[in-house]
Design a binder for these strands. Structure first.
Lengths: 226, 226
DNA sequence: GCGGACCGTCAAGACCGCGTAAAGGACCGG
DNA sequence: CCGGTCCTTTACGCGGTCTTGACGGTCCGC
């Protein structure tokens, strides 16, 4: 679950944000001033929503202080429209700046965008990882693993496998596959496909003669079965 | 140098952005429609500035298309004030949304924030000293140490190594490496790379014939393995 | 049962990317 | 002007990869 630290001294806004955020599945921590905000940073929130008009500390100092404690994205809320304030806040380490009054939908979308970017590396890095019974395909790292060891694929082999995997189980016609891997001018060389399907099966399938994942659909094409 | 891809069909805006961005030390690529924007994504911009009102493709499709090709942050420019548009764009994969007309200072600050966020991980905070098993790279002092003694690198050798090290293990394509080290006009002289890779390996690798740190990814490029 | 279309398999040769050595040439400081 | 460093360019061998051809098998319609 994603944890949001809301820092604002206005109980009205805190309450409104808590309701909306909780309703959207977030876990909510709150702080009413800068000092407690910096303390709350130790609880490792995934994202911080920060009002700049706090009673005890200057807003910019809160940002730099938070930056020392955490790499979580900071979305600043502020009533000030002055663009110089925005520039200072962003350069101090904030990730986005929303002026009050704000629309809740837009605010939530900006929050999602901030969280998405900060988690793409660690969580998202291994999300496009497709599993089959006997091997796994890492689409970003372009690597295949089987029985714990890495399997080496040639560029063309990889190109073919990638197209099949990205299709997500859909049957792809020979001409479609050829166009994707070899370019639109090789759509009649269906023999290539057979050769490379054999090689892929030999490298990936437990029993290459009876493929379970790289399946032939006679007369229609090929399909990847996760 | 940070590379910005500016996508807009209005020559006025492109021109204004190019001037401002260049003056602030960015390298600027431009595209006037969605199709060429997707093509330009292969040049690995560090950040994309995208106008949503393009003549050929729907803005959201451009965002999702870019997201397939690159993880660079996307800052959307749009004349539409409707918050529903913002929500859609942000949820499609955009990182920030600026409405026209916009203040250049604020825009630049948002751009800096977007770039900072996406490069924070590899900047490695305050440890610009990268260790490999057989040598260490000091990125600030521009020095290499191996077995306690300093290794001398020529400027070009250093440039190449620096780009590889800063990429933090990511595979870099030949064209990308050439553009970074020799400038964007030498992207086809792939032979340079082989020559300099040999020299770097001879100076740094324990067994230059079987490199452990400066690794070739056949068909895709080169990678630094710490 | 028979022929043809489609598919799987194997292997040989062409081709291309990569690594390596080394020569030519620009540039610079003495 | 000279020696050195560094960049560029040429040449070549090797190994992996792609392409191509041949052949056997299976399924289906006739």
């Amino acid at each position: 679950m994603t944890t949001v630290l809301v820092v604002d001294d206005d109980p009205q806004i805190v309450r409104a944000l808590r309701i909306s955020l909780t309703a959207h599945g977030y876990r909510v921590l709150t702080a009413a001033d800068g000092a407690s905000a910096l303390r709350a940073a130790d609880d490792h929130p995934d994202v911080v929503v920060l009002d700049l008009g706090l009673p005890d500390l200057d807003g910019l100092d809160v940002i730099t202080g938070l930056r020392r404690a955490t790499t979580a994205p900071i979305v600043v809320l502020s009533a000030r429209l002055d663009s110089a304030d925005k520039v200072r806040a962003l350069d101090a380490g904030a990730d986005d700046y929303v002026t009050k009054p704000f629309g809740m939908e837009e605010f939530l979308a900006r929050l999602r965008a901030a969280v998405r970017r900060s988690t793409r590396r660690r969580a998202g890095a291994d999300e496009p990882l497709v599993r089959a019974a006997s091997f796994t395909v890492d689409l970003t790292a372009k690597k295949i693993h089987r029985d714990g060891t890495e399997v080496h694929l040639t560029p063309t082999e990889w190109g073919l496998l990638e197209v099949l995997v990205r299709a997500g189980g859909e049957v792809l016609s020979p001409s479609r596959l050829l166009a994707e891997v070899w370019g639109p001018n090789h759509t009649s060389a269906t023999h290539y496909l057979r050769v490379y399907l054999v090689q892929l099966r030999r490298k990936l399938e437990p029993d290459p003669a009876h493929p379970r994942h790289l399946v032939t659909e006679p007369g229609r094409g090929y399909r990847f079965q996760p």
